[in-house]
């Protein structure tokens, strides 16, 4: 008990990890989190960092730097020295910066240290909605133009891309009601202010389990173990096959001119941390698919994500610039 108390004080005062004077991490590392406290990016990064601290033998001081859909954090990291002491901890959003004209850099201009995990988008609806699967929802929306209220998180957000994917296969007249995040939108769904909402599995799974909302669609090619009996959307809209699997992700990145040995050290640390049992359990329970990849594999993943997302929003008409301007290839 006394030890616990002492360690609290020590933690609050000096942060407890002992420092091994090796060549690379000779001082604290700063981790810049793109999103605010309490968000899912924040939670994932705070869960993985203590493990990485142990492997690296130094402290990772986490700081939330929000704003500009994450662009401010990204610019901040790129303005620092590429010495591996400033990490960018972010989600998928930067891959859309170029076509949405939010910034002229994205993850392809940085080095991925580790892509930790990826999420699966699903469709949820309020319990008393008169449809139980995608086909019924599409039929209902066609029969009642403008009546289905869909929650949205702004252009470029997950919901807009998922809706654009559906729209590329079948034209629907729905009313989309904007919220500033999937949390508030899912709350509104339970209050009946909206009817349907594309959301990432992890954010809504607990509400679904408790029977407060129902799943009507799965944006993937294969069924999901957490969602027995829900058909993948490719059964209803086979045309989506070439765009899937697609989903939001979390990753750690450094500036492009960071020395290779530093990147390797960081990658090892974070990939190892992603394999820790409690982190795995956290990801499983939230319905995220664990990845823990780096190097060429991670770069390919990023490129594929960027190509699908950029072209889908461009075709849906809310991109500000054409992906071609940046040499982003259309997905085959």
């Amino acid at each position: 008990m006394k030890k616990r108390l002492l360690s609290t004080i020590a933690a609050l005062a000096f942060a407890a990890a002992p420092a091994f004077a090796a060549e690379y991490p000779s001082k604290d590392i700063q981790g810049i989190i793109q999103w605010g406290a309490g968000g899912s990016t924040d939670a994932v990064m705070r869960a993985v960092s203590p493990h990485a601290e142990k492997v690296l033998g130094t402290d990772i001081v986490l700081t939330n730097k929000t704003g500009g859909v994450g662009a401010i954090a990204m610019k901040y990291v790129n303005a620092k020295k590429g010495d591996g002491y400033t990490l960018l901890m972010g989600a998928e959003n930067p891959q859309m910066y170029k076509v949405l004209d939010l910034a002229n850099i994205d993850y392809n201009d940085m080095i991925p240290v580790s892509i930790l995990a990826r999420g699966t988008p699903i469709f949820v609806a309020r319990n008393d909605a008169p449809y139980n699967n995608m086909q019924e929802m599409i039929d209902y929306a066609k029969a009642n133009p403008g009546k289905v209220k869909v929650g949205s998180t702004g252009p470029g957000g997950l919901t807009s891309i998922v809706m654009a994917m559906v729209d590329s296969q079948v034209k629907l007249d729905v009313t989309s009601i904007p919220y500033d995040g999937d949390g508030p939108a899912l709350t509104a769904l339970q209050g009946g202010a909206i009817d349907v909402m594309p959301s990432v599995l992890g954010a809504s799974i607990e509400h679904v389990k408790a029977g407060r909302m129902k799943v009507i669609g799965l944006m993937d090619e294969t069924p999901h173990p957490l969602l027995p009996g829900i058909d993948p959307i490719t059964k209803t809209l086979p045309g989506l096959e070439k765009l899937l699997p697609w989903g939001p992700f979390f990753g750690v990145f450094v500036k492009a001119d960071t020395p290779a040995d530093v990147v390797t050290k960081l990658s090892t640390a974070f990939n190892e941390s992603a394999q820790q049992p409690d982190f795995k359990a956290l990801m499983d329970s939230r319905g995220f698919t664990l990845m823990g990849i780096s190097g060429k594999e991670a770069q390919d993943f990023l490129t594929a994500y960027r190509s699908v997302s950029s072209w889908i929003v461009y075709d849906a008409g809310f991109a500000k610039k054409s992906p071609e301007e940046f040499g982003i290839k259309r997905p085959e």
Binding site: F14, A15, A17, P18, A19, A21, S26, K27, D28, T58
Partner: peptide, 13 residues
């Protein structure tokens, strides 16, 4: 500062 801080930490830890 951060170099000084980690030096102090090393001395203590």
């Amino acid at each position: 500062e951060s170099d000084i801080m980690s030096a102090i930490k090393e001395m203590i830890g």
